[in-house]
Simulated assay, not measured.
Amino acid sequence: MKEDNPWETVRIKPVYQNPWIIVEEHDVITPAGREGIYGKVSFKNKALGIIPLDQDNNTWLVGQYRYTLDTYSWEIPMGGGPLGEDFIENAKRELKEETGIIAAHWQQLLKLHTSNSVTDEEGFVYLAQELTFGETAFEETEKLIIKKLPFTEALDMVIEGEITDAISVAGLLMADKFINKTKK
């Protein structure tokens, strides 16, 4: 069932932008009929996460220091795909850059919104199989550690709270459901 939008936008004021994001301040009338302000962050890319899976059910995670969180993070390989470009091709590029892996078979597992209270960002997670291996090509902003491990161990890292990135958590849980469904 589709609901009508209870918000009224009065004015949109661009506040800041860089090559990755646009920040806007929205003057609004709230659903309660009061004047208010809403901040919105729009991304210039779609978020793309990839779960590489080999024939022995091993996967690969990348570890890196996340500046915004001021902490180290284990995640599935991921990156951004510019709006208007083919998401699969960008996911292939990200997987190759971050892990050196090339996959022959791709399956979209899910589409999600990363933090829908402040951003309109969409993310897509893919399962990549039939893998071959080559060299990485990290971007200048990346200092990554690559870890190969059984898929079940990556799933345990989610359950134990060792993986906290939303796209990685959702993607690994969905991959588990997909893998178990295809075994039946």
Rank of each mutant, 00 (worst) to 15 (best):
T99P: 06
Q108N: 15
L83T: 14
D120R: 04
G81Q: 13
S117M: 06
R93G: 02
L112T: 13
V125Y: 12
G80P: 09
E97R: 12
E122T: 08
H113Y: 03
L112K: 04
L95I: 08
T114C: 00
I101E: 11
S117F: 12
T119M: 02
R93H: 06
V125C: 14
F87I: 12
T114R: 02
E89S: 09
K96L: 12
L131F: 01
G80L: 13
A91N: 07
E122H: 11
L110V: 05
G84K: 10
D120N: 11
G81C: 15
N116S: 10
E94P: 00
D120E: 07
N90K: 12
F133N: 09
L95A: 06
M78H: 12
K111E: 14
E139M: 13
A91H: 06
E85D: 14
E98L: 07
T136W: 05
S115D: 08
G134S: 08
E130P: 00
V125W: 03
G81V: 15
M78I: 01
G84L: 08
V125K: 03
G123Q: 08
I88A: 11
E98I: 10
E85W: 10
H105I: 01
L83W: 14
I88Q: 14
G84P: 06
A103Q: 05
Q129L: 00
P82E: 15
L83P: 05
W106N: 05
E89Y: 10
K96M: 10
Q107T: 13
F124G: 13
I101S: 07
F87Y: 14
L95C: 08
A91Y: 07
I101A: 05
D120V: 01
H113Q: 08
E89T: 11
N116G: 04
D86S: 15
G79T: 09
A137K: 14
E139A: 15
D86C: 15
L109K: 07
M78N: 13
L109M: 08
G81A: 15
G123A: 15
